[in-house]
């Protein structure tokens, strides 16, 4: 037992081994991910960059169990990610992953608090406990006073912060953010990055954030870059990335 614990201390939080994924549409094959290897430490905040179509979203979705790989392995805390039935992988996702997307993260017919509460409805938590957790999460993202507001009454930055509260509320081990600042102005983007950094430093969350924004990438611990489905040295590829034509 002691040995096992010792061992697990040395295990990387997230290990991705030879992960490959291709999409087939008729005769054309698109290699979205090509033998990706990646190690992420517990509490690391990682920026995932790369040109459009390089496979960033695909990688994130596979790590989060929303999509499945053709080959390769993903281990979280040494445990293989569960890729069984849809119900099993949904259950796994509910406990381990918090997702944030670029846009339309929130359900328009639910208030901010109700949106944040969604993941908790999958747990056996009492409604009182849920309310506490939701309140705390909204407090953390600085929107406690907007709990009863609906998405169309919130600014883009506020919407993203509610989405982060929702991704965070069920205390997942890993937060996966796909261009969370992509739709935001510089100032709002900054506050989102600060928020994610707080989650990292104060709650030891491991975060992988896809971004096109070099300034956003600078705010993280480490930047990794995808190019045509392969992980490359970030420094080497940054030129390609910068010349890819996207302006942020």
């Amino acid at each position: 037992m002691a040995r096992l614990l010792l061992l697990s201390d040395n295990i990387m939080f997230l290990q991705i081994k030879k992960l490959s994924k291709e999409y087939r549409k008729g005769d054309t094959r698109i290699i979205a991910l090509d033998q990706i290897n990646l190690n992420v430490e517990q509490g690391e905040f990682i920026a995932l960059t790369g040109p459009s179509g390089s496979g960033k979203t695909t990688l994130l979705n596979i790590i989060g169990g929303l999509d499945s790989q053709d080959a390769g392995q993903i281990l979280i805390e040494g445990q293989a990610q569960i890729k069984g039935s849809d119900a099993e992988s949904a259950f796994w996702r509910a406990r381990n992953i918090g997702f944030v997307f670029q846009f339309s993260n929130l359900l328009p017919y639910l208030s901010a608090a109700q949106n944040v509460e969604l993941p908790l409805l999958l747990t056996s938590m009492s409604s009182k406990k849920r309310r506490e957790r939701v309140g705390a999460a909204l407090e953390l993202v600085g929107l406690a006073d907007r709990a009863s507001h609906y998405p169309n009454e919130l600014s883009g930055g506020q919407e993203q912060r509610v989405a982060i509260a929702r991704a965070f509320v069920s205390s997942p081990k890993l937060m996966l953010c796909d261009e969370p600042t992509g739709d935001l102005d510089r100032k709002s983007a900054k506050s989102i990055l600060n928020l994610l950094n707080t989650l990292k430093t104060e709650f030891k969350k491991t975060i992988i954030m896809v971004t096109h924004d070099m300034i956003a990438a600078e705010a993280t611990d480490r930047r990794i870059e995808l190019y045509k489905g392969r992980l490359t040295q970030a420094s080497v590829c940054s030129e390609v990335f910068l010349s890819s034509g996207k302006e942020y």
């Binding site: 929303l66 949904a90 509910a94 997702f99 339309s104 999958l122 929702r166």
Partner: peptide, 16 residues
């Protein structure tokens, strides 16, 4: 379509 996928991302199974 997208809303339901969002539920899926939050950990709701297709059955749920």
């Amino acid at each position: 379509k997208r809303e339901l996928a969002l539920f899926s991302a939050l950990g709701y199974s297709k059955r749920k």
